[in-house]
């Protein structure tokens, strides 16, 4: 039973990782919270759903969701952050403008879906269940985990092993020096937002498949979880966000499984209390550094 819950939690953690890594990436590079990230995640689920509903195969829905969410994210960057960055007012202004973008995206989704809860048709993803060592694993769970891990590995490779990744980190740490090295930060910001949105879109599709409830508000709890995860992991830390995603996914699954149902409404309260306690002892999160702001360097 415990092993089963841990496994379930691990799968959920993988999805959280997709969501939170994109969130972290943008925070790391811009020192700005993109509060439209939840809405972008939701748009991924919507794009995949409507592709399937129109008769398209699931893989096509997934591909369109990844690309579409990436593009919506780029649009958010251009509309919400670019001008503010130029005027040097992105920290607070960006919070407000991205809330605005979030509302716009959600309202459009609400209109399109007529405020209904959408579900992928039965067997959109083949229902296959394997049992071994007393554990129960569905093909969907394996697919979710494989996709999440594959995307995380690809992202890690991009950021830590390619010239593009070095440029992203250079802009994050010292934008002015990066420009002097011939790096165009405007382009780096756009590419980063694309990656961030694409990962969120993939997470949205997986969540839509797993919990079969696609709603225009589905991004909101995820935005909250995203906060918990990037603070738990340490602001701007990619490895930290990864670790925190899995811890959070497993912790949440455990609570749901073992808490008496009478107080199950308090699960989130427990999670936030635990976060609060942890921050008392580790104010910079699990893998954060002294001053996250210093990562960026002077302008």
């Amino acid at each position: 039973m415990l092993a089963q819950q841990l496994l379930n939690g691990f799968v959920v953690g993988g999805v959280y990782a997709l969501f939170a890594l994109g969130f972290t990436l943008v925070f790391g590079i811009q020192r700005v919270l993109n509060l439209a990230h939840g809405a972008i995640f939701m748009s991924g689920a919507f794009i995949a759903y409507y592709t399937v509903a129109a008769g398209g195969p699931l893989w096509l829905g997934l591909a369109l969701a990844v690309i579409g969410s990436g593009l919506i994210s780029v649009l958010v960057e251009i509309v919400c952050f670019r001008r503010l960055r130029r005027s040097g007012d992105e920290e607070f202004g960006g919070i407000i403008s991205s809330i605005g973008a979030s509302l716009v995206i959600m309202t459009i989704a609400q209109r399109i879906s007529d405020t209904q809860v959408l579900r992928f048709p039965f067997e959109t993803f083949p229902v296959i269940i394997w049992r071994f060592w007393g554990l129960r694993v569905s093909a969907l769970q394996l697919f979710m985990l494989a996709l999440a891990l594959a995307l995380v590995v690809v992202l890690g490779w991009f950021i830590y092993r390619t010239a593009f990744g070095r440029q992203v980190r250079a802009v994050t740490q010292n934008e002015r020096a990066a420009m002097l090295m011939g790096i165009n930060p405007v382009r780096i910001h756009m590419q980063t937002f694309f990656l961030s949105g694409a990962l969120a879109g993939a997470a949205g599709v997986l969540v839509g498949l797993a919990f079969s409830s696609i709603r225009y508000t589905m991004g909101e709890p995820f935005l909250m979880y995203g906060f918990v995860i990037i603070i738990l992991g340490g602001l701007g830390s990619i490895p930290g966000a990864l670790l925190a995603s899995f811890l959070f996914g497993m912790g949440q699954t455990m609570l749901t499984a073992y808490m008496p149902s009478a107080i199950s409404g308090l699960n989130e309260a427990f999670i936030f209390a635990a976060l609060f306690l942890l921050l008392l002892f580790r104010p910079h999160g699990l893998m954060g550094r002294e001053a996250a702001g210093a990562l960026r360097g002077r302008r």
């Binding site: 010239a163 070095r166 440029q167 980190r169 250079a170 740490q173 010292n174 002015r176 020096a177 990066a178 002097l180 090295m181 011939g182 790096i183 990562l295 360097g297 002077r298």
Partner: peptide, 26 residues
Amino acid sequence: IQVPEGRQVFAEMTVLENLLTGRTAL
């Protein structure tokens, strides 16, 4: 190419990564 005042190296990157980043200007 300017080498700025106060060095402005990319502190959280390795020496080699700093050098490779310099190649962007090529």
